[in-house]
Every structure is written in C-alpha cells, then in structure tokens.
Amino acid sequence: MSEAPAPRLRRSVGRSAVDARHVLVAVLCVVGVVAAWWFVLAQATGPLPTPATVLGRTAAFIGNLLGAATDAPPAYAQLERWVDMSGLVFDTLVMSVLAMGLAGAGALVSIGSASRLMMVGDVGTRRQVLGRAVLLLTRGTHAVLRSVPELIWAMLIVFVLRPGILAGAIALALHELGVLGRLGSDVLDDLDPAPLRSLRSAGAGSPQLLMYGALPQVLPQLVTYLLYRWEIVIRATVVVGFITGAGLGHQLRLSLSFRRWTEVALVLLLYVLIVWVVEAIASWLRRLAR
C-alpha cells in the first residue's frame, strides 16, 4: 500500500519538465480556446455586456429575488405559499424516483450483454459471433442514450407521450440508462473471471451465469452508482420539468416569465433544499449498501 505511489512520482520528477508533446498539446489548447471564444462571441446580436454591467445587473437581480421590486410581502415569507409548493416538490421527487427505478431496471437487464467478459472469450457465450454482435449493439445503444442529454430526450418524448410526470421520468431514465449501463458493464468487466469460468464449465447457461455468478457480486456497486446518480438526476428533474410541464421546473419557468421574482426565490430555495435532502438520503442509503 505504501509502495503504490512511488513509481508515479519518480516518473514525473525524473522526466525533463518541458517536452515537445506537452508543448504541442498546450499550443493546440490555447488556439482552440481562443477560436472558440471568438466564435461564441461572434454569435452576439447586440453589444456584449461589460463585467461591470454583469455585476450590477446580478446585484439588482438578487435584490429582486429578495423582494426589492414589489411592496407585496415576499412569497418565501408566507407559510401558505410553502404549502402550495409542497405538491410540486413531491411531484419532482416522484419523477426522480421513477426515473431511477426505470433506469436501474433497464441497466440490470442490459449490462450483461454490454460486458465484454460476459459476452466473448471463454466465459462468454458459445456463439462468439453472435456474442460480439450483441455486445457492440448494446454498448452502442448505451453510448447513444448517454450522449443525448435528458432535455433532448424530453423534447422528442413529448411528441409521443402526454406531458407529465411519467413522460419526464422516461426522458430522464433514457439518459440514465446509458450512464448506468456503461458504469455497470465496466464493473462486470472487472470481475474475477475464474469463478465464472468454473460455473460455465459446470454447464451454466448465460442467464444462469449472470444470475448466480455475476449479479450477486456487482449488485452492491450498482446500487451505490444508482444512488450517486440520483443526486445528479434530482438536479436534472427540474430542467426536464420545463419541457414536460411538471413539478418545480414548470413552476420556475412560469414564475420567471411572469416576473414574480420572490416566487422565483421560493422555487430556487425549495430546489436547493430538495437537492441537499436527496444528497443526505442517498449518502445514508449508500452506507446500507456497503
């Protein structure tokens, strides 16, 4: 354990600090960054705000959130507004739980066929060509699912499904399935192949191999990942709610477009609270999984 870091340190100290490859990477990075900034700022239709305007307007905005723009009592100071919003908080939570459940179930079903160890080689299926084809197909599907953000899935889904909590959950689940599929199949690939090999040589078929050899070993890790991703999904749930018209996200969009700033403040407050509560619950549950 105490030996582990030594070779890495020696390697980085022993090499000359400046190296042609480093210079090349650095120059390419700088050129890329300058080109990107120029290209983005060229998209502007009007004059760009100066740092002073950005700061000034941000300060004014924060003032508005606190209630500077209106004489009415701020929304976040009224108990009944908190009660009104609690339904939206509940909907948001339900959407995230549904999304994680759907994504977790999908991952459980698909990670076996996305694992190189389980599909090819001496542990894999006997029909190697078929195994390889299924492996590529599943991995490709996971990659596509995770490359497309939740919001774009939501934009596509509202063409087919009625906007609401379930549509949002499905949009979230599609992206999450891609992420969990990748994480889960990586865990499977890191398994010790020996016990699996002996199961295989004792005549176990692929489903049995997955059920009795692999899943019991990876399930705790998979549940840990699921809980970590829940913390990320709860943030995204609000955003998907913009499109599928459900939960806090929908309310945030309404409040912003009606310029009810103190209501915006209340929604943001609830949002941050819900994220922190989910983080606390997830870290408590992770301890159970260990």
């Binding site: 009007g46 705000p49 912003l256």
Partner: peptide
C-alpha cells in the same frame, strides 16, 4: 453546485438578456 446548468441559464437570461455571455 446545487443548481443545474440550465437553471443557471434561465437565471442569467433573466439577468443579462439574450447574449452568448
């Protein structure tokens, strides 16, 4: 960190108007 980048986008839109910044 608690807020998603698109929520930030909505807030900065409200603050700065429609600009790449």
């Amino acid at each position: 960190r608690a807020m998603h980048e698109l929520v930030w986008a909505l807030l900065f839109l409200a603050i700065l108007g429609l600009t790449p910044v």
